[in-house]
Design a binder for these strands. Structure first.
Lengths: 214, 214, 214, 214
DNA sequence: AATGAATGAGATTTCATTCAT
DNA sequence: AATGAATGAAATCTCATTCAT
């Protein structure tokens, strides 16, 4: 029985090795330009073995994405735990996302590529879930506006933040050229707007940009 | 001369035929599953001829997207013209986008696919431009909050709205299953939030869903 | 010692199990379409284990063929023993072959497949040997023509009979369709010709079909 | 229209080139050891192009066999035309087969390999047909025994001759080793037997080996 | 311009066979 | 001995793209 377990561990390990190899090349050359042969060679395995662990290149990509999701999820949980009020938690999660987007650009791109596919079920790591928690806490502790619907808002937040980041990512240069605006400013501006949207105590007509922590 | 013109007209017409054929199949089977052969056969041309008019499958897709962009752009202008205040214009544009997403789902998908690629330059039909105009007008006529930066906000609006819609699109079923929320409610909720974000006169703690026109 | 013997017995038994499994599937799906995996699974063993007992798929096939050869050989010996004169023995062997072909079609096919390969040495069960014996006896007892060379004739008989049967097998339907002849008639006709070729006393121009025992 | 014809001619020509290349390698290395890549490289085409003309390696093999069949068929017709009586024609066809087997060993092997498959329909080049003609003529002109059934006999002759030749081919060395008989003697002996079986005037007990033309 | 054959590159599949445990 | 993962070699398939006519 120990044997079976060891076998399984080895299998898991090898599977992981393959994902690491795939990741390396996907990130270096892009999904389209990567061949299974490339991956096999980096993993020091035969092409056949790759197909022993994965059904298709697409599935391999999915595994890489999963790693990104785990990293992101970890960052979200850390952010969640490290902040006090619900609003702080929410903002921290947003900030974590921005950091992920900046520091893990490859994973972010992989994730975006994946985001095309239809989704069957909300996975238990879905970022929307942690956002819901944060918002609920915020409503309870009074840091977040009382009138928001935490579930709907979480769904919105995830969608719109991804949209802003993606848009920013793809058009950064074009935006800078056309409007002479630094891309980071956009993100900063976005964070402010989100805060205004969520915070319990923001006076309706008030406050310019950057007046507070972002 | 007349000959040359006729030639050109014929060429344009044929090019358009090809785009229409491509569109038909892209929409029916998706970009990946469409072959140039498919398109050629629907266009009643040979594979080679397609390449006389387009450099690549990707470019053909781009032409289809362009048609979608034109439709969208038309809807945006109509929305813009048909509303009075800047805020109304902005909201009308948002509503038009939602309508486009619902009524032209195929174009919307094509557009999303396209949006994936990096962008070199802000095209003169870029939706962000019309949003900037609407916001500027809104600031001037007082319907929109004075403290917003119209350019940054337009950029944000475009990005986040696309994100919300895309997220909604991909996960609609999953969201309904997990949270028992109708997908349209999310869109409605989003529109409210946007209004709150932009309107000059929304009382800070007030207003439930659907209290006004969306 | 007893242990070693038991071991050997177990080994033989398992080897046989494998052959039986292989046979089952070869017969059901044909050699080419059978995988070692198939065989292993029917034998309730792992792929690797098969290779402990056999060097190759081809060798496994050989073992199946060997079973067929043993059956055929048994039938031949029975036929040989059960007939009186050399001519009768020869004819009985022929009849046994026809019966084998009809009743053991799978083995027959396997055998044919095997017969394709070059042969190094005349095995001690080679059907030609028993035919030589029968012919020699026939020459001695006067039932077979005196002028035939028993060895050459035995070689011919084996070759041509196999050829006739194989041809009949492969083209039976086609022949029936093209010439409206029942395949069994061909075999019958063949037996007559052989008899004429071998029998000591057949008048040169005489005898139609079916005039005697076949 | 001339264009279409030329196209077709070119296609045929290329198809033929591929068959020639395949033939070259099949004959040199055997079917199993030949890769499509090999063939493509000899034909100076890409692997993909091979599949444009042939569905599978097996089909390519069939095309090579077809060439062999045509050669054989040609030899048969020549033999048929070159002999006077029906018996001579039949014998000449047999002799042609032997020559084919000796001089076109590669084709002969290819043909044998092919002979495994079931046959749907008697093709118009099937050797049995010409044998039927020869026998019929022989019966009419009195050179062949009156009591034979030309169709059945032709079927037999084809089957048994192929069997003899194949057996001789595969076991030649083994036979020589075991019985000290030259393989050609077997063939010669076979021809005599066939002659005796068919000829109208052979005295029942007469004639040793090699007494006449074979 | 139009055609459609050819290319070439890579994904996928399939297995017999080998090998480490 | 037994296992089953790994290998490696090919077959097959699929297409976007190119090219000769």
């Amino acid at each position: 029985m120990g044997t079976a377990e060891r076998r399984q561990r080895e299998k898991d390990w090898r599977r992981n090795e393959i994902v690491l190899a795939a990741e390396k090349i996907f990130f270096a050359k892009g999904f389209e330009n990567t061949t299974i042969e490339d991956i096999a060679s980096v993993a020091e395995l035969s092409k056949g073995t790759i197909y022993l662990y994965f059904d298709s290149k697409e599935q391999l990509h999915g595994a890489v994405v999963m790693r990104g999701v785990e990293i992101l999820s970890g960052m979200f949980h850390e952010a969640f735990e490290g902040a006090d009020t619900g609003l702080e938690k929410t903002k921290a999660i947003g900030a974590a996302y921005m950091r992920f987007f900046r520091e893990q650009e490859d994973y972010f791109d992989a994730l975006l590529r994946y985001e095309f596919h239809e989704v069957e079920k909300i996975g238990k790591h879905d970022p929307m879930l942690i956002l819901i928690d944060a918002l609920k806490i915020g409503i309870e502790d009074g840091s977040v506006r009382q009138d928001i619907d935490p579930v709907k808002m979480a769904i919105l937040l995830w969608g719109q933040t991804t949209g802003v980041v993606q848009n920013n990512h793809r058009k950064c240069k074009a935006i800078t050229d056309a409007f002479d605006i630094d891309c980071d400013e956009i993100i900063e501006y976005y964070m402010e707007q989100v805060k205004r949207m969520l915070a319990a105590d923001v006076p309706s007509g008030g406050g310019g940009a950057g007046s507070e922590d972002v």
